[in-house]
Design a protein around this nucleic acid. Structure first.
Length: 900
RNA sequence: GGGCGACUAGCUCAGUUGGUUAGAGCGCUCCCCUCACACGGGAGAGGUCAAAGGUUCAAGUCCUUUGUCGCCCACCA
């Protein structure tokens, strides 16, 4: 047993060793599948850049805590680490990496690009895995999670075909969001709206056959090249005479009809609107109603297309500038006013998205959404914290069809084949040999791939072997829990629910726990791209993983984002150090005790610990009854808090137990006993302190895995014990709860505190011991003090304590009183009387107010008739106590005044 | 424009179903380097729980309004 223990806990010397051991010995994986209740958990993918930031750590820590806790309770646990296809991001990052090497990915060809991406994914997966190992993640972060494996692909294709056959997948021609940078369609969810300062340009369109103009307002002049109409409100008197006439589109010299449509807002701009069906969702609908043609004036990379006439080839914003200039030159620009409006930008690359009319694959949502709403309403799926339920319903009720095709190379290829001869589209699981309509063999697979989230939506069952009725599917599906952040509630969570219900008929998970988001100190969401991400590995090196985990958990109150500032971690680091030193205390003192006494094996073996609490000559002293009672309560609270995903509560509970109860009181109280020459008593004390300590380690283990693992191994363990993570989590011990012991011990604590308070008032330094008087009218209380005289003297630094039932003479000393006892230290030296009186007066005023209000309430007949008995009784009891306290304070004040 | 949330000690935040003196960490003040720990020990100051109204015997907790600040959703040129 190593006995040279440094004074300070040094995580960097301990963590790497255990991280390695967990991985090499496959401790978590080996025992993951055992007999027992099932805990299966779906967890989200890491971000695609391959780097972790503090924001991820919260999620990983919660997952890891739940996993360790469940495994320690004998659950059969299983992870389904979420898929990371992240098609757009991946393609973009890989393309960038290739570009850095001077390679244009588009010239590589699809196959070669996929190959390169695979390689990159592997490296990335390896990097993430390595990082997760360093921080002690108990789940396996292997490359499988990035796999577009053939089996999974088959499931995705199967699902697509099934949905198509049911008419839920269809090809639609609509306005979609086009990102000219990523060069693909993106869904509404992937665009974010930003307020930007822009302009509203008022442009004159000459009315054909008249000398009149109709003035339209636009924020995007470049789209006017694609205008195929002008619309006004049918009841707008200003324009009624123009409806049915034609306008001449400036710059393009094209005649376009003036139509009437109720969609037009008479109040906005001039009340006349240009119609560009190919570049605006509203105009698209309007154009369909009035049979206006679509003219797409842009190219995939955001330049003006051949349809843009003289402007063809210009970048779209360059074209805007030129168009405005030209309009001005021709006297067709009536005015320009500054205008702030929201524009859509690509979530990933921040490029301004271009709405374009385009033919895409869509998935009908309504029939899938309705059952998904029902299961959350009925509680079959529980979303916690509950406020996210509303958000979920809100979105689901207003759900729109989902464009699922993406113009990318990386992802699951859409299983559709286009006939070159007859344009027939064939959706099938396998590539068809020939067109089923015209028999042509000239078939081409649709070049598009599926949105990342399409395959991710299937994850809970696709990974368990569905559609086969596998053992895994039977055992683990529906999974117990999904744990994720709210940013993918719609992307992923809602869609998993819909797809799960659709294809398995069952919910994919029982509970959805939405964890808070970690923000940087400026309240920005942590993000690598914004440079606001903090590398957890840096924090680890400085403070240790345990400290970082514990800090996050202390702050992680459900339903509220938390702000990461580095100073908070110091207190967790200190906590780790405190535990380390508590252990150090035990080991160092055991060294002193062992010669001639019992060995550590005899004092702390698993068998000995299991037999706790150990009696002292047939009896269990008060302090032992108290600490075991406190331990039992702590265990119960830990279970309750973790059951409800109240991580912050669990962290606070264990913190208080270890630091407040165990270190500050229990160890301090027991100190002399541990080196006592009374071997029998000392042995029992040692055995109990080791059992409580060891139980505390197990309680804490999910939160601080490294520190607890290290210390646990310094205690005697069974030869087969490999890790504290495989030990049993402390179980509730209701028989240890001892209310009487807690009440009595609290009184002893109050007595000691009262004496310390007096010492502080007298500004005595701790070496100077003084004699004190203790007085209480309660016989039991006096006996309690007498029975615990030694520890009280020691912890309060008193040389003597005279216990009596007589009132204390206040003169010439300092007194502290509670309702049940008085404590007095005589002293010849002058205490600061003014300060003391100020304190007493303030206390008196507070008590007077309190007593008055309680009296008032206790005289209230309605209160007495309506309030429950225990409330009335409690109030009455405290009322009497306050009254006594008040009386004592008043007497004390009088005495001081008389003396002065 | 809709929806959601927050406002509690100097700072960052807890506070389960309304119920007896509203808590923690950091910071601050005072005393201590006492043989586990100064990343420590002991003691203390500091809050009319954003404002107003309401429900109730009882409100930090429930309801309404207001203010301030966030977030999400939304096709108004």
């Amino acid at each position: 047993m190593p006995r040279e223990i440094p004074k300070t806990y040094e995580p960097q010397q301990i963590e790497p060793r255990w991280a390695r051991a967990w991985v090499e010995q496959q401790l978590f994986r080996a025992d993951a599948k055992a007999a027992g209740p099932v805990f299966s958990i779906v967890i989200p993918p890491p971000n695609v850049t391959g780097s972790l930031h503090i924001g991820h750590m919260l999620e990983h820590t919660e997952i890891d805590i739940l996993t360790r806790w469940h495994r320690m309770r004998g659950f059969n646990t299983l992870f389904l680490p979420g898929t990371d296809h992240a098609a757009i991001s991946t393609q973009r990052v890989v393309a960038r990496e290739l570009a850095a090497q001077g390679i244009d990915y588009r010239k590589l060809g699809r196959e070669e690009f996929e190959k390169r991406t695979w390689k990159w994914k592997e490296e990335y997966g390896g990097k993430i895995t390595e990082q997760m190992r360093q921080i002690g993640e108990s789940c396996d972060w292997t490359r499988e999670r990035f796999t577009l494996s053939p089996e999974l692909s088959r499931v995705v294709i199967d699902v697509f075909v099934r949905l198509y056959e049911e008419g839920l997948i269809y090809r639609g021609h609509y306005i979609v969001n086009w990102c000219p940078q990523c060069q693909t369609t993106i869904s509404d969810l992937e665009t974010i709206h930003e307020e930007r300062q822009g302009s509203l340009w008022y442009v004159r369109y000459p009315v054909v056959g008249t000398s009149q103009h109709i003035v339209v307002a636009t924020t995007r002049p470049e789209t006017m090249l694609g205008d195929t109409g002008v619309a006004v409100h049918p009841e707008d008197e200003r324009y009624r005479h123009l409806v049915g006439k034609r306008a001449r589109l400036p710059l393009m010299n094209r005649e376009i009809p003036i139509v009437a449509d109720t969609f037009v807002d008479r109040e906005f701009g001039t009340g006349a609107v240009k119609v560009t069906p190919a570049h605006d969702p509203n105009d698209f609908e309007l154009g369909k109603r009035h049979n206006l043609p679509e003219i797409d004036v842009m190219t995939d990379d955001g330049h003006m297309s051949a349809a843009a006439g003289a402007y063809a080839g210009l970048e779209r914003f360059e074209a805007r500038k030129r168009i405005v200039e030209d309009l001005k030159a021709q006297g067709l620009l009536e005015k320009t006013v500054p205008y702030t409006h929201a524009i859509g930008v690509c979530e990933r690359c921040k490029t301004i998205i271009e709405p374009r009319a385009s033919t895409q694959w869509f998935c009908k949502m309504k029939p899938l959404a309705d059952p998904a709403i029902a299961v959350v309403e009925s509680g079959e799926i529980r979303i916690t914290p509950e406020n996210w339920r509303e958000v979920y319903f809100n979105w689901m009720h207003n759900i729109r069809d989902w464009p699922v095709s993406r113009q990318l190379w990386w992802g699951h290829r859409i299983p559709a084949w286009h006939c070159r001869e007859c344009k027939e589209i064939i959706v099938a699981r396998e590539a068809p040999a020939k067109c089923k309509k015209c028999g042509s063999g000239k078939l081409e697979q649709d070049p598009d791939v599926l949105d990342t989230w399409f395959s991710s939506a299937l994850w809970p069952f696709s990974t368990l072997g569905w559609p086969r009725e596998t053992e895994d599917l039977r055992t683990y599906y529906p999974t117990t829990l999904l744990i994720t952040g709210y940013e993918i509630l719609f992307f992923w969570v809602a869609r998993m629910i819909m797809m799960g219900l659709k294809f398995t008929g069952k919910v994919p998970f029982r509970t959805v726990y939405i964890h808070p988001i970690v923000r940087a100190s400026d309240r920005q969401k942590m993000s690598k791209s914004k440079g606001t991400g903090i590398d957890p590995l840096d924090i680890n090196r400085k403070y240790g993983t345990d400290a970082m985990r514990f800090t996050l958990m202390m702050m992680a109150a459900p339903g509220k984002d938390l702000i990461w500032t580095e100073d908070k971690i110091e207190s967790s680091r200190n906590f780790a150090n405190k535990i380390w030193n508590a252990a150090r205390f035990l080991f160092v003192n055991l060294d002193k005790f062992e010669p001639g006494g019992a060995t550590m094996e005899e004092l702390a073996s698993p068998e000995v610990r299991a037999a706790a609490p150990h009696r002292f000559r047939g009896e269990l002293p008060l302090v032992e009854r108290w600490i075991f009672s406190r331990a039992a309560r702590t265990v119960a609270q830990m279970h309750g808090a973790l059951q409800e995903y109240r991580f912050h509560e669990a962290a606070h509970v264990i913190y208080h137990f270890v630091w407040g109860d165990f270190c500050d009181w229990y160890i301090e109280w027991q100190k002399p006993l541990l080196t006592s020459s009374d071997r029998e008593t000392a042995t029992a004390a040692w055995r109990n302190i080791f059992s409580v300590f060891e139980a505390a380690l197990r309680l804490l283990h999910p939160f601080m895995p490294f520190l607890t693992e290290e210390l646990w191994h310094r205690l005697p363990q069974a030869a087969t014990a490999k890790s504290i993570a495989l030990a049993q989590y402390p179980q509730a011990r209701p028989e240890w709860i001892d209310e009487e012991a807690e009440r009595q011990f609290t009184l002893l604590q109050e007595t000691i505190t009262a004496a310390r308070e007096i010492r502080a008032t007298m500004k005595l330094d701790s070496k100077r011991k003084v004699a004190a008087d203790f007085s209480s009218v309660e016989y039991d209380l006096r006996e309690l003090i007498k029975a615990n005289r030694q520890p009280v003297l020691r912890l309060a630094s008193l040389s003597d304590l005279r216990v009596s039932g007589e009132p204390l003479q206040a003169a010439g000393g300092t007194v502290r009183s509670t309702a049940r006892f008085d404590m007095r230290v005589a002293s010849a030296e002058a205490v600061d009387i003014a300060t003391e009186m100020g304190r007493l007066r303030k206390e008196m005023e507070r008590l007077e107010r309190d007593v008055e209000s309680k009296k008032h309430r206790l005289e209230d007949a309605t209160f007495l008739s309506k309030a429950p008995h225990h409330i009335i009784k409690g109030l009455r009891d405290t009322f009497f106590e306050r009254q006594i306290e008040l009386k004592k304070i008043k007497q004390r004040l009088e005495q001081i005044e008389n003396n002065a």
